[in-house]
């Protein structure tokens, strides 16, 4: 804890970015997954990493969450490089992986208590109860997670990630495999997180998800960032055909939600829990 590996802020940035990635490279044997990735994520913002399957999104998240060592380049969180002081990085981050990393055999509440204890918090039980209430899981709290629906599981997964109030949260494809209602619930949680000042890096292959949530969007393609900007900036780059597709998606969801008789996320939550 004594070593400081602070990266000096460049003059034009008044605040140091919460996440800094520079020249990041990673190969698996012959496969060059990352070929020099650069991006910064401002503190308290939502940053979406957009890319198709196999583009390297998960590899970036795994490097930033200290699970994988990069071959070259810089990956720093809150000014601390992941390769030089992984432990300090882990103090400030939380990872929600591609598949809900919850303990199926424990109850929802026990899962939360487990993480609270591992974060060495004083009142694990209270922390768990608060989060169950916040994520509309109070009724299901004592049930085994194996009985949960996909949406409930993902909510619990994210709730577990919030324990200990990490400054930076990584969400790796948080809505893949979820139905539209559960997706909206996750989106709401992510927006609330950012409002509270948490930095969120999320990966997605859904254009509308990036559009809905992100302050900035970077497109990862063949191991490099080929575009990085706000939605408005990117829209000027994209051909109109692609824009049409993006605009269609919410409409279908609206149709779906009207047909199944839901006008908000709260009601659907009650049904599920």
């Amino acid at each position: 804890m004594t070593r400081m590996n602070t990266i000096e802020a460049t003059p034009e940035l008044r605040r140091e970015p919460a996440i800094r990635v520079q020249g990041l490279e990673k190969s698996y044997k012959e496969l060059h997954v990352l070929r020099g990735v650069d991006f910064d994520v401002a503190a308290g913002s939502i940053f979406a990493l957009l890319g198709s399957n196999g583009a390297g999104k998960t590899t970036i998240v795994r490097i930033l969450s200290t699970l994988l060592r990069p071959d070259a380049g810089i990956a720093a969180v809150q000014g601390v490089e992941v390769t030089s002081d992984a432990r300090r990085v882990r103090e400030s981050i939380s990872l929600t992986g591609q598949f809900a990393a919850v303990d199926e055999i424990l109850s929802g509440r026990e899962n939360l208590v487990l993480v609270a204890k591992l974060r060495h918090l004083k009142n694990p039980g209270d922390v768990a109860d608060d989060l169950l209430a916040q994520f509309d899981l109070t009724d299901a709290g004592s049930r085994k997670v194996s009985t949960y629906s996909g949406g409930m599981r993902r909510r619990l997964d994210i709730a577990m990630s919030l324990i200990g109030e990490p400054e930076v949260i990584f969400l790796d494809e948080p809505t893949t495999g979820l139905d539209p209602e559960a997706r909206l619930e996750v989106w709401k949680v992510v927006q609330e997180l950012a409002e509270q000042g948490t930095t969120v890096l999320l990966t997605t292959q859904y254009l509308d998800e990036a559009e809905q949530l992100a302050d900035r969007i970077a497109i990862l393609h063949q191991g490099r960032i080929i575009a990085n900007g706000t939605l408005a900036e990117l829209k000027r780059l994209l051909p109109p055909a692609k824009t049409e597709y993006v605009e269609k998606q919410p409409t279908l969801e609206e149709v779906f939600l009207v047909l199944v008789g839901n006008n908000g996320t709260n009601e659907s939550r009650k049904e599920q829990s």
Binding site: R62, S65, T66, L67, R90, I93, S94, L95, G97, Q98, F99, A100, A101, V102, D103, E104, V115, L118, M160
Partner: peptide, 9 residues
């Protein structure tokens, strides 16, 4: 299940 990676992060 990924819980191993959760613990490790």
């Amino acid at each position: 299940s990924g819980i191993f990676e959760r613990f490790h992060s």
